[in-house]
């Protein structure tokens, strides 16, 4: 299993997700510099959290123009698995790999805490180790996580089962996102963007008793292994 984690200037969760992929799940993982024009053969690409290019102008708005994004988009459109976490999700939206846009949190403040989430779609490659409608817990840490999409777009998300994760209730929604959306996929299901940080809750030592992020990565790893065996 080969994974690539893109490092943009200002990324700050790149090492965190690198550690989880390589040390816990045994992915052969590279950190990929944003100025690269080409990608090696990867089974999974991750756009990590952080403040790419300082998130000046608007989160992810400058990162979408990074050189690396051309091959990332090609990879995604060719059905490669792409995971965008937090800032990575914002970049996926800005690159039009996922629909909708991100606004500043309703209360205008950065928020960092554990939130409860509902797994709305457990049929994706990223979530099949969760139960349907299971309530899980993950940390969020963002100032711009207020997901927005117009009515038509929202209906399309719902019709195609693209809402993968929701905040467990309106009162637990930390940013004011439409329909309590915390994570969405594309129609084909090979691209997932989410605001919560699964890499921050994949080890018992730092999130005792609530390492719910682990199963997101284990879903991916199991899928790749099964797929690999079939091909092999």
């Amino acid at each position: 299993m080969k994974a690539g984690v893109v490092t943009f200037p200002g990324s700050n969760c790149d090492h965190d997700v690198y550690n989880v992929l390589s040390k816990i799940f045994g992915f052969d993982t590279d950190l990929i510099w944003h100025q690269k024009h080409h990608l090696k053969d990867y089974d999974l690409l991750v756009l990590p959290g952080g403040f790419s290019y300082g998130d000046y102008l608007r989160s992810g708005a400058i990162a979408r123009f990074a050189k690396i994004m051309d091959p990332v988009i090609d990879f995604a459109l060719a059905d490669g698995l792409v995971l965008g976490i937090c800032n990575g999700f914002q970049i996926l939206l800005e690159s039009n790999l996922l629909p909708g846009a991100m606004k500043v949190n309703d209360n205008l403040k950065f928020v960092c805490k554990n939130v409860r989430l509902e797994v709305n779609n457990n049929k994706t490659t990223f979530t099949n180790h969760y139960r349907e409608n299971e309530i899980i817990e993950m940390p969020v840490a963002h100032g711009e996580g207020n997901y927005y999409i117009d009515k038509k777009g929202l209906n399309s998300l719902i019709d195609n089962n693209q809402i993968v994760l929701r905040y467990a209730s309106k009162s637990e929604n930390p940013n004011g996102s439409v329909e309590n959306i915390a994570g969405i996929s594309n129609k084909k299901g090979n691209i997932l963007g989410l605001m919560p940080h699964p890499e921050r809750c994949s080890e018992d030592i730092i999130s005792p008793g609530r390492s719910d992020g682990y199963r997101l990565f284990s879903s991916i790893a199991a899928g790749l292994k099964a797929g690999g065996e079939q091909i092999g």
């Binding site: 965190d16 989880v20 928020v111 960092c112 805490k113 840490a141 080890e203 730092i206």
Partner: peptide
């Protein structure tokens, strides 16, 4: 809660 106290895991 306005500070990221978890990054770097």
């Amino acid at each position: 809660e306005q500070y990221d106290h978890m990054v770097m895991t």
